[in-house]
Structure formats: structure tokens, C-alpha cells
Design a protein around this nucleic acid. Structure first.
Length: 572
DNA sequence: GCCGTTTTCGGCCCGACTGTTTTCAGTCG
């Protein structure tokens, strides 16, 4: 049983209790425990085996018992009982923006509506307006909310939100009332998917900023407009929240609106313990309400006795304790990457020539690049036959001889791991390459044992440098393999194999949690794009962001090595 | 449901916006 599945059951229990009208704090306990388990670096089964479940903050006697039951039996008797009380469709209504537990409960109890389809009809027929606390506008808003979830299915990939957010920031800079501006929220933390874009501005004239904001060309609909907060929907269905604060509050507001929620709760508690009160307007003396700091985010952390915590770390995964002890990692930066070694050229299914890729790499300031085309059995992607491997080797040697600036092209491969774990080239061919990446591209349906041993057998080949996109997940399209990551990390360590952080926005594989877990086992990583056209080489920043979210430092990553070092590592 | 050198009972982060009210509840982040 995976951590995510345990968390999902806890979230479900919380939703039902919420609709039933259970006390807020009880409901919150289930959600807090769910979030902790979901983002925990350690396998929940291992935690239970070690008898450490109760040591996790937020898990007491009752939750311990329920979580153990879930892990042992794959289900929860308590949830099964609760499910009989609230129909599935009613739970789904909680996902509609603007609808919370109280309204959903009223809709279910008084009108006996149990599906979103029926709710839509009831709104159209004007049946909701007679309920206490409901009106005509409520009906319209619910209809809009239903339309929205039907259209967007929730969250956007990081690159989409990143592009939208940056263009919008540039637009807002044209408003002369804007003093300071920053992206905040999950986009600033570089989460792999983004629910909505948060932008923070400091200004002495918020009304004018808000007016300027809603006139942005790509605004489809204004959801809410006030003097401190305005929300709009862009034409690509991404929601943007703009907050405006006074300059003296910009730092504390940036801290507050960057989140995460759990990080902020920890921060507020810490502030309280130290005799302060922390909110988006600043850090205040708890007794006298006197303003202490708030202009800069750094000051807030410093005043609370903390080293500055980079946004990517703010997930309540131990960063506050580390900041107290001044033991935060020195995170890897975009500029630390010296070359991308997983790029497809037109020798297989890539779009560009090797020369074009070289020229783009130089533009990005890299010292080298690795061309890793597909191997022979992947016919659909024009995988290279053994003959063509030799020809490609000759072409790369020729290109290298032409470089007069010390730049180097490495000849690599993304060799298929066949279903039994053997590799798609013989050792005598693998020897031709400067380095070997291996990856799975066929037969994705496997048990945990099969998938784990398939990858491990691949890693045991002496020519292998790294495993590409190890879990093979595609965000929103394909679930990750159920892998025994502990075993994968141990083998990576013992064989000296790197694990890839694939930067493509719909992969981000390994993810942040894997990175942190792997680092604790002293595993080395490599950050690549796996791109098939040079326009996408800039996606490397999303891989770096994922590594940062996983607490990785420059020394944890193979392709931060300068040319001389990586040549030595490849033995070429 | 969790938690504790101020507490084993009584707290638990908190402010903005909306829509419904006529002073506030619900939702959101």
C-alpha cells in the first residue's frame, strides 16, 4: 500500500465527516495526517514496521489504529461505514469551486440531490434559491463552477502556469502604481502542477492596480474584485489571484502567499512561541501589536531565528527545523548545469540535427551535450540499428573535431530495457557509446516485483550510466510504476548508477519526494530534458526546480560536473 | 482527533471576499 493511497482514504474520511457536520478540528486532523503521509519521504509500511507511526506529528492513538488497519487490509472499516451515509456524487460536489461542506450538506439533506448532473438541473430550474443562505447568484455561481471543472479537470502543468505567470508579471510592470511584484503560491514553489497563479504586488494605490489587472487582454472572466484581492479566469482557463499590499507588508505577504499552508502554520506557531504574531501584513508584537518587520521576506525568517528558506523547500518537510539549526541544503541552481545528456536528434525520433542541438546548447552556456537516441527495437521511434550506431559515432567524432571552443558532444543512447530486464544492445555495442542511459518504453503493466527487478537488472550492466524517467509516469495520463524505491536506491548506490530527473513538464520523474529519499541514501542524480526539439531544452529549469524541491545540491548531480570531470566520470 | 514545562481539558492560523443577511455564515487560500 502506497503512501498516496493511505492519504487518499484519510482525505475521503475527512470529506464525509465535513459534510456530516463533524467538528472542524476533528476533520482537520484527518487532512493534516493525510498531507503528512502524502509528502513523507519514507514508505508508510516501513514506518509502521519500525514502530514509528506515533512519532509523526498529528498522528495519535485513533489515527494510528486506523492507518495500521488501512495498510494491513487495504481498506478502512470506518470509511466503509461512513460511505453508506453520504453518496459518492455528494462528495464530488466538494470539488466545485464555491461549494463547501455546509452548502453541499444543505443541498443533499433538503433537496436529496446526489449527483453533479442533478445539481446542475436543480440550479437551472431555480430550486436552490429557496434554501437558507442560497440565492439566485449562488445558483449561477454553482453552474459556473461546474462548467469550470468540466472544462479544466483541475490543475495545469508547471510550464503552462510558468509561461502565463511571467507574461502577466511583465504586463503588470507597465502599471506605474506597481512598486514591487512577485509570483507567489505553488508556482513560486515550483510544484509540478498548479491550481491557480498567485501574483503579489506592493502599491500605495491598490484600486488602480486592480483596474489595470482586469483589463489584461487574456482575461475571460472576473471572478472576484476587491481592494486587496482580485481573481480572474484567463482564456486558457487558468485562474489568477492578484493581491496588493502596502510596501511595508510586501515581504510578509510574499512569505504568507507563497505557502505552503503547512509551512505557514509552522511559521505562525513559531512566531507565537516567540511572542510575535505573524500575518500577511507583517510580524507584530503579540501584546502591543507593534509592527516589527515585513518589508522583506528575509527579515521575517531572520527575526524568527531562521536561516532564509528557499520557496521550493517550503512544504513542511523538515525545512524549519533545518533552518533553526542552520543546516539547510545549498540548493542546486540553473546555472550549475553544464550540459544536458538526454536529447534526441533526428538520428531517431528527434526533430533537429546534432549541429542545431550543439548550437542551442552553446546559447544556453553549456560546455557539453549528450545525444541519447533510441535503441534498435524501438522501431516506432526510428531506434538505431547497430550499423547506424557506428555511423552516428563517426558523425559525432567529426563534429567534435570541428569545435574550436572546447565544446564537446557525447555520443550516448537511451537504450531500451526489455521486459526481462536485459538491454536492447549487446555489450560490444554499448561499449561504443561515451555513456549509456536506459529506459522502459514498452510493456508498462507489471507487478511491483516485476517492475523493480526489471530496472535493477538493467542497472547491473556495467556500461549503464543512468536510468531515464525511472517511474515512467505521465502526469494526468499514466500512473507511475509501483516500484520498491528503497531497493532501486540501494542498487543505484552500489552500482554507481545515476537516476534521472526528467525535466519534461508532464514527466518530472523522479519527483521531489524521490529526490529527497534518494539523497538520504547518497544516490547521485542527473537532470535532463529528454527533449525532441531544441525549443524544449529550456525545460531543464523544471528539472532543476524539482531537484531543489527534493533538497538536492550541486554535488548530488552528475551534469553539474564541468567537462573535464564528466569526461573522467565517463572514462572517455 | 491531536497536543501540552503556562494546560490531560480546552484550545486548535486567520483575514478577505461574496452573497446573503441586517450583523454574519460560508468559502478560500
Amino acid at each position: 500500500m502506497k503512501n498516496q493511497q493511505v492519504a487518499d482514504i484519510l482525505f475521503r474520511i475527512a470529506d464525509i465527516l465535513d459534510i456530516k457536520g463533524e467538528i472542524f478540528f476533528k476533520v482537520r486532523s484527518y487532512r493534516v495526517a493525510g498531507r503528512t503521509i502524502e509528502s513523507m519521504g519514507k514508505d508508510i509500511e516501513v514506518v509502521i514496521k519500525e514502530g514509528m507511526l506515533r512519532d509523526i506529528p498529528g498522528i495519535g492513538e485513533a489515527l494510528e489504529k486506523k492507518i495500521k488497519e488501512i495498510v494491513e487490509t487495504d481498506q478502512s472499516e470506518y470509511l466503509e461505514k461512513l460511505k453508506n451515509e453520504i453518496p459518492e456524487g455528494v462528495l464530488r460536489m466538494l470539488g466545485i469551486p464555491g461549494l463547501g461542506p455546509k452548502k453541499v450538506s444543505a443541498i443533499y439533506k433538503h433537496l436529496n440531490i446526489t449527483t453533479i448532473e442533478d445539481l446542475k438541473q436543480a440550479c437551472t430550474d431555480g430550486k436552490l434559491r429557496n434554501l437558507d443562505g442560497f440565492g439566485e447568484i449562488t445558483e449561477i455561481n454553482i453552474l459556473r463552477g461546474i462548467q469550470l471543472i468540466e472544462k479544466t479537470s483541475g490543475r495545469a502543468l508547471l510550464n503552462m502556469a510558468y509561461a502565463d505567470g511571467n507574461i502577466l508579471v511583465e504586463y503588470l510592470k507597465n502599471c506605474d502604481r506597481v512598486k514591487q511584484i512577485s509570483i507567489a503560491g505553488s508556482l513560486r514553489r515550483r510544484k509540478e502542477t498548479i491550481g491557480d497563479i498567485d501574483i503579489l504586488v506592493s502599491s500605495d494605490s491598490s484600486e488602480e492596480v486592480m483596474d489595470f489587472f482586469v483589463k489584461y487582454n487574456d482575461v475571460q472572466q472576473i471572478i472576484a474584485k476587491g481592494s486587496t484581492k482580485t481573481s480572474v479566469l484567463l482564456i486558457d482557463n487558468l485562474q489568477v489571484d492578484l493581491r496588493v499590499v502596502k510596501p511595508e507588508s510586501f515581504g510578509s505577504a510574499l512569505q504568507y502567499f507563497t505557502g505552503s499552508k503547512d509551512h505557514n502554520i509552522k511559521m505562525r506557531n513559531l512566531a507565537m512561541k516567540k511572542g510575535y504574531k505573524l500575518n500577511e501584513y507583517g510580524l507584530f508584537d503579540k501584546k502591543t501589536d507593534e509592527y516589527i518587520v515585513g518589508r522583506n521576506e528575509e527579515d521575517v525568517y531572520q527575526k524568527l531565528g531562521l536561516a532564509y528558506i528557499e520557496p521550493e523547500l517550503r512544504e513542511n518537510r523538515g525545512e524549519i527545523q533545518a533552518a533553526i539549526k542552520n543546516q539547510l541544503p545549498n540548493l542546486v541552481k540553473n546555472g550549475d548545469i553544464c550540459g544536458d545528456i538526454h536529447i534526441h536528434s533526428n538520428w531517431s525520433d528527434g526533430f533537429d540535427t546534432i549541429e542545431t542541438i550543439v548550437s542551442q546548447s552553446k546559447k544556453m552556456g553549456h560546455e557539453y551535450v549528450g545525444i541519447a537516441d533510441h535503441s534498435q527495437s524501438l522501431k516506432i521511434a526510428r531506434g538505431l540499428s547497430e550499423d547506424r550506431v557506428i555511423k552516428k559515432r563517426e558523425e559525432i567524432d567529426k563534429i567534435n573535431r570541428k569545435q574550436d571552443d572546447g565544446f564537446r558532444v557525447f555520443c550516448g543512447t537511451e537504450c531500451d530495457i526489455k521486459s526481462d530486464g536485459s538491454l536492447d544492445y549487446s555489450d560490444s555495442i554499448l561499449e561504443i557509446f561515451d555513456y549509456v542511459g536506459i529506459g522502459i518504453h514498452t510493456k508498462f503493466k507489471m507487478t511491483r516485483e516485476e517492475a523493480t527487478s526489471r530496472i535493477i537488472r538493467g542497472m547491473e550492466n556495467e556500461y549503464v550510466t543512468f536510468v531515464a524517467h525511472p517511474t515512467c509516469r505521465m502526469i494526468g495520463r499514466r500512473e507511475p510504476f509501483d516500484l520498491d524505491m528503497e531497493e532501486i536506491f540501494d542498487t543505484a548506490k552500489s552500482t554507481g548508477t545515476c537516476l534521472e530527473i526528467n525535466s519534461f513538464p508532464d514527466r518530472l520523474d523522479l519527483n521531489d519526494i524521490h529526490c529527497k529519499q534518494g539523497k538520504e541514501k547518497d544516490v547521485r542524480f542527473v537532470i535532463n530534458t529528454d527533449c525532441h526539439r531544441v525549443e524544449n531544452m529550456e525545460f531543464i529549469r523544471f528539472g532543476v526546480a524539482t531537484a531543489r524541491r527534493g533538497w538536492l545540491e550541486k554535488s548530488d548531480i552528475l551534469n553539474t560536473y564541468i567537462l573535464k570531470e564528466i569526461e573522467k566520470s565517463f572514462g572517455v
